[in-house]
Design a protein around this nucleic acid. Structure first.
Length: 434
RNA sequence: GCGGCAUUAGCUCAGUCGGUAGAGCACUGGAUUGUGAUUCCAGUUGUCACCGGUUCGAUCCCGGUAUGUCGCCCCA
């Protein structure tokens, strides 16, 4: 085993039992996004390294020490595996002029890469669903995006995910706050930890988000951003809150909520659970009105959020959510050369009618083949031996009924017989449910 | 990147106070020779994560590495 090549640390395989949950999740997410008018976009996993440095911020942890960056040895180009999706999405929107005429609601889902120490709910390759609305300036889209989250948790059968909300104001307001913040922290330098000192002049806002208990006192006494906000910023924030209140969605204002990426302004929010240990944030986002211009596009407002797929799927599994494990419709059992050739015709004929068929491969006794048929979850076994082949018939055996309802059916009548049985079966089930 | 804990059959785990290992599930075969899921019988399961050290002898003790996990950091 140990001599074999293993998956890269923090980049796990998702095996079939697990992957079925992923597909259930993805189906739910896609129809949820469609119900809000979002359209898919697919960006490359690799982007030029400067894109992330400019978008995310040079002094963020992501850019400083978590990016998978490398130089393309064939042409010397600096490249990076995307650590998040917004930068690439905005790059694509600019490059293809997508919001020249009209705003866009976009989404993507896929891998992201960050070189962190792995643990549950945190991996080096992880998956996000990213949702971005570009070209919308008002608080309405912010609120809509937040309300979307609440609906998805409901669709996924999750509860206990709580909303935290904050506003970061506008760049000039942050700048004044930031200047005062630096002065304040400089006056209390002896109370700052090493990380905070390093950030003092580069990114002091992040110090407010520190969880270091030793620093809580100095943080509480720091200048508050809300006191620096102008009328427009306050109005925007209030409008978002009003819509949430109208919708009956509870939230908590967390003035220390600061996003890890530098491009945010005004509204920021996080959806948090206490069921995932240290990885409690399952969804986070906010407004980033400056990013399009910062990346060279014509200035345009924008708002978005990303969800951690691994974290949400972990919650779905904890909550007992199950993908509806529908097996195949039919399992074809056969022995003998003529029977085997007929089995292919039977199987393809059924598939022509839209019936799911697993054709037994690999030989074996009828007994062992029937075991496989049972394990497959098939509603019917189609059994073909020499007798059936000689008569151009098959034996059709219902696997989910009491007694032995097995009967011989001409090959050409097989599909119709199965379709009728499945219809009857469905009707009975509906009656039971009603 | 830092600290703690863990790593035994495909899965979930037990165990050896240092003398190379077991259960359940799963899997394979059989119980009137063409028929499952129940029951009964039989059988295979493994360099006890890897490398090195101590020892007559290590799966067990010690060190390192890898991976996982919990917390910190950070974040989805």
């Amino acid at each position: 085993m140990s001599n074999n090549i293993q998956a890269v640390r923090g980049m796990p395989d998702i095996l079939p039992d697990e992957a079925e949950f992923w597909e259930l999740f993805e189906d739910t997410v896609r129809s949820w996004l469609k119900s809000y008018g979002y359209r898919p976009i697919r960006m490359p996993i690799v982007e030029p390294t400067p894109l992330f440095k400019r978008a995310i911020g040079e002094v963020t942890d992501i850019v400083e020490k978590e990016m998978y960056s490398f130089v393309d040895s064939l042409n010397g180009e600096p490249l990076t595996l995307r650590p998040e999706g917004t930068a690439g999405c905005v790059r694509a929107v600019i490059q293809h002029n997508l919001i020249a005429q009209t705003p866009q609601r976009l989404y993507y889902m896929g891998q992201m890469f960050r070189h962190e120490r792995p643990q549950k709910g945190r991996y080096r390759q992880f998956h996000q669903v990213g949702v971005e609305a570009l070209g919308f300036a008002g608080p309405d889209i912010d609120a809509e995006m937040i309300l979307m989250g609440a609906r998805l948790w409901d669709d996924l059968g999750l509860d206990g995910i709580k909303l935290q909300l904050n506003t970061l104001g506008q760049p000039e307001e942050r700048a004044r706050h930031r200047a005062d913040l630096i002065v304040y922290f400089e006056q209390h330098q002896d109370l700052l930890d090493e990380d905070a000192k390093r950030r003092l002049h580069s990114n002091p806002l992040r110090i407010l988000d520190s969880k270091n208990p030793a620093m809580q006192e100095v943080i509480v006494g720091a200048p508050k951003l809300i006191d620096y906000l102008g009328e427009a910023s306050l109005e925007h924030f209030n409008a978002v809150q009003q819509i949430l209140k109208d919708a009956g969605l509870p939230f908590e204002i967390n003035p220390r909520l600061v996003r890890g990426l530098d491009y945010y302004n005004l509204t920021v929010f996080e959806w948090v659970t206490d069921r995932l240990g240290a990885q409690g944030t399952v969804c986070a986002g906010g407004r980033y009105d400056g990013l399009v211009g910062q990346l060279g596009g014509k200035a345009a407002p924008a708002c978005g959020f990303a969800m951690g797929v691994e974290r949400l799927i972990a919650l779905v599994r904890d909550a007992g959510g199950e993908p509806c494990k529908r097996g195949t419709d039919v399992y074809v059992v056969h022995a003998g050369e003529a029977a085997s050739r007929m089995a292919f015709r039977a199987a393809e004929g059924l598939r022509d009618q839209g019936i799911d068929v697993v054709l037994h491969c690999g030989g074996g006794s009828f007994k062992s083949q029937m075991k496989k048929a049972d394990a497959s979850g098939a509603a019917f076994a189609v059994i073909i031996g020499d007798d059936e082949a000689a008569a151009n018939e098959v034996s059709l055996k219902p696997m989910r009924e009491e007694g032995d309802g097995q009967k011989r059916v001409p090959l050409e009548a097989l599909a119709d017989t199965i379709m009728n049985s499945m219809l009857d079966w469905n009707e009975e089930n509906e009656e039971e449910e009603a």
